[in-house]
């Protein structure tokens, strides 16, 4: 502040520590999960209740910082009195609910969802999902051999489609999109969890360079008219990469190393530090392999970034790395 005297003297300590206005504490909701009583605050979801009880619940489209889109349906649970299963990520806990997370119906649905994904999407860079497939006994081979990659997915119109013979399993397989030097899009690996659209949209970046286009099995993540990223509204914040659960969106550096067969997470170290650009103070998690930054992420659970970065924080480290190539000092 600008009181002249205060240039010299530190202002006095406030008597009370400044805190946000006190909000009424939420009443607790009591419900039953797998036969056990759970208490969660009002507004908590069934997934929260499961976590409270330490019940391991698979999720794909859920992101703790985002409004649940509840589209993957792998987190479904059985709610007594409900005709169908309910998505635990978005269903709010109500007093007296009786929830089952391990009933045959729940297990079947989860298995089938995982099987559907594994049979239609390349999960090779989604180890967590592959582990879930195993855990639930998904058998994607039941749908037949994989259909060959398609090159027309970006232009498929809604409505009538070519009827399949049924002897091979249709997939979202298609060529990788490499149209800029920073990151690649391999939609053969896309499970359509909507998280990238949320990250690009009003949950974080508010740039809206991508959206879901098309309908049904032909639904896809797309820029306007499927133009390349440099022709789109993309600002290369990479926040979509940060939330992609399957590696469909990937740093070009990671993609290149993987293609060369030199990507090795066991040799990588992750270090949290603060971005060196503007004064906002974003935490960067640097993924370093062989003294080289191969990827930059940000922790989703810290309040400044909530996992988000801008183009400088995410990609602007090259000059640090290239210092070895500096010319020698002038003699």
């Amino acid at each position: 502040m600008n009181e002249p005297e205060m240039w010299y003297k530190a202002p006095p300590r406030p008597t009370l520590i400044p805190l946000p206005p006190v909000r009424a504490t939420k009443p607790q909701v009591e419900l039953t999960v797998d036969g056990q009583t759970v208490r969660v605050p009002e507004g908590a979801t069934l997934l929260d209740a499961c976590m409270e009880r330490g019940i391991d619940t698979p999720t794909v489209c859920f992101h703790p910082n985002y409004t649940p889109v509840n589209v993957c349906r792998v987190c479904v649970v059985e709610l007594e009195g409900a005709r169908t299963l309910v998505p635990s990520c978005s269903r709010l806990a109500e007093p007296g609910m009786v929830v089952k997370t391990d009933s045959p119906r729940v297990k079947t649905s989860r298995k089938m969802v995982l099987e559907f994904l594994a049979s239609s999407v390349d999960l090779s860079t989604a180890p967590e999902l592959l582990a879930r497939c195993q855990e639930y006994g998904a058998r994607p081979e039941r749908y037949g051999p994989p259909a060959p990659p398609a090159t027309d997915r970006d232009s498929r119109a809604a409505g009538h489609h070519h009827e399949p013979a049924g002897n091979e399993a249709q997939r979202v397989a298609q060529p990788v999109k490499i149209d800029n030097g920073l990151y690649i899009r391999d939609y053969s690996k896309c499970v359509l969890c909507y998280k990238c659209v949320q990250a690009c949209g009003d949950e974080a970046q508010n740039t809206f360079a991508i959206a879901v286009a098309g309908r049904g099995f032909d639904a896809r993540i797309s820029t306007e008219n499927a133009v390349s990223l440099p022709d789109s509204a993309c600002v290369y914040c990479g926040n979509c990469i940060g939330v992609c659960p399957t590696g469909a969106l990937m740093f070009k550096s990671e993609h290149t190393l993987r293609a060369q067969g030199t990507w090795d997470e066991t040799r990588q170290k992750q270090t949290d530090t603060i971005c060196g650009y503007c004064g906002v103070g974003c935490t960067l998690t640097l993924h370093v392999q062989d003294n080289t930054i191969v990827k930059v992420t940000s922790p989703a659970d810290q309040d400044i970034t909530r996992g988000n970065l801008c183009v400088k924080g995410r990609f602007g480290h090259e000059s640090i790395q290239n210092r070895g190539d500096e010319p020698e000092l002038p003699a």
Binding site: L182, C234, G316, S319
Partner: peptide, 14 residues
């Protein structure tokens, strides 16, 4: 960023 010393090094499509 600023005089471009640091940002000049990465291949920004923008």
């Amino acid at each position: 960023y600023n005089t471009g010393v640091q940002t000049g090094g990465f291949d920004s499509p923008l």
